[in-house]
Computed example of a mutant assay.
Amino acid sequence: MKHITIIAAAGAMLLAGCSGGTADADGDGEITAKEVADKSKAEGIKPEPGLYKSTITMTELDVPGMPAEMKGHGAGQVITTEDCLTQEEVDKGFEELMKQGQNGECSYETFNLNGGKLDAVMVCKSPEGSARMTMSGTTSATSSEFTAESKMNFEGMGEATLKFTGKHERIGDCKAK
């Protein structure tokens, strides 16, 4: 599993702002990034542009075939990044922001963000396999905190599980280039 996928998925939650209810506009049982973006846009919800610090902490890793002595390996690993969200990126809409960095084709089974409380399930399919990530937490236009569990099926190996926490916070304005 790629760290960028985890960070991008986590970042998507920060960028989601605050919206209520489920975004499955066409009623097909699958919530696409476009449906989430359209719902957010219709409600006038946008994240604040600025410099964001993202901290992802792995809390559990279970991979099929992992030697017993490696059980828990990676737990506690922290990935911290700083990324600038410009006004231009905000103006492009959530659909484009949420697509960035995803490994494969992703859609939402559920995406509920109501009163700053997040509950979502995202499924991504790639040549390496399929992954299903459940996320819950809180979010605002300038910060979010959540827990997530990702399960990925590796052909011929079985299902790996990764659990992590994420925190995103606006720490200032973007630096001039």
Rank of each mutant, 00 (worst) to 15 (best):
1 M>D: 14
2 K>D: 09
2 K>Q: 08
4 I>M: 12
4 I>F: 10
9 A>D: 15
9 A>T: 15
10 A>Y: 01
11 G>F: 03
15 L>W: 14
15 L>M: 15
16 A>H: 06
16 A>V: 00
18 C>Y: 08
18 C>T: 13
18 C>M: 12
20 G>M: 12
20 G>R: 11
21 G>K: 05
25 A>P: 07
25 A>W: 01
27 G>H: 07
27 G>T: 00
28 D>C: 13
29 G>S: 07
29 G>T: 02
31 I>W: 05
31 I>M: 12
33 A>V: 08
33 A>I: 10
36 V>T: 04
42 A>S: 08
44 G>E: 09
45 I>F: 14
47 P>H: 08
51 L>K: 01
51 L>G: 03
53 K>C: 12
55 T>W: 06
56 I>G: 07
56 I>L: 08
57 T>W: 02
59 T>P: 11
61 L>S: 14
62 D>S: 12
62 D>P: 00
65 G>T: 10
67 P>C: 09
69 E>R: 10
70 M>N: 03
71 K>W: 05
71 K>N: 10
72 G>T: 04
74 G>E: 00
74 G>M: 01
76 G>M: 02
81 T>P: 06
81 T>G: 05
84 C>M: 03
84 C>W: 03
86 T>S: 08
86 T>F: 02
88 E>A: 06
92 K>Q: 00
94 F>S: 10
94 F>R: 10
96 E>L: 14
98 M>N: 15
101 G>S: 01
106 C>T: 06
107 S>G: 11
107 S>C: 07
108 Y>S: 09
109 E>C: 13
110 T>S: 14
110 T>M: 12
113 L>V: 13
113 L>N: 13
115 G>P: 02
117 K>L: 12
117 K>F: 13
118 L>P: 07
120 A>S: 06
121 V>R: 10
123 V>I: 13
123 V>G: 03
124 C>R: 04
127 P>H: 00
127 P>L: 00
127 P>V: 01
128 E>A: 06
128 E>W: 02
129 G>T: 09
131 A>Q: 06
133 M>P: 09
136 S>P: 00
137 G>P: 01
137 G>D: 04
137 G>A: 06
138 T>R: 02
141 A>S: 14
142 T>Q: 09
142 T>N: 09
144 S>R: 06
145 E>P: 09
146 F>H: 14
146 F>S: 14
149 E>G: 02
149 E>L: 00
150 S>Y: 13
151 K>V: 15
154 F>R: 06
157 M>L: 12
157 M>G: 04
161 T>Q: 01
166 G>P: 05
168 H>V: 11
169 E>A: 07
169 E>C: 01
169 E>F: 03
169 E>M: 09
170 R>N: 09
171 I>K: 04
172 G>I: 01
173 D>G: 03
176 A>I: 06
177 K>N: 10
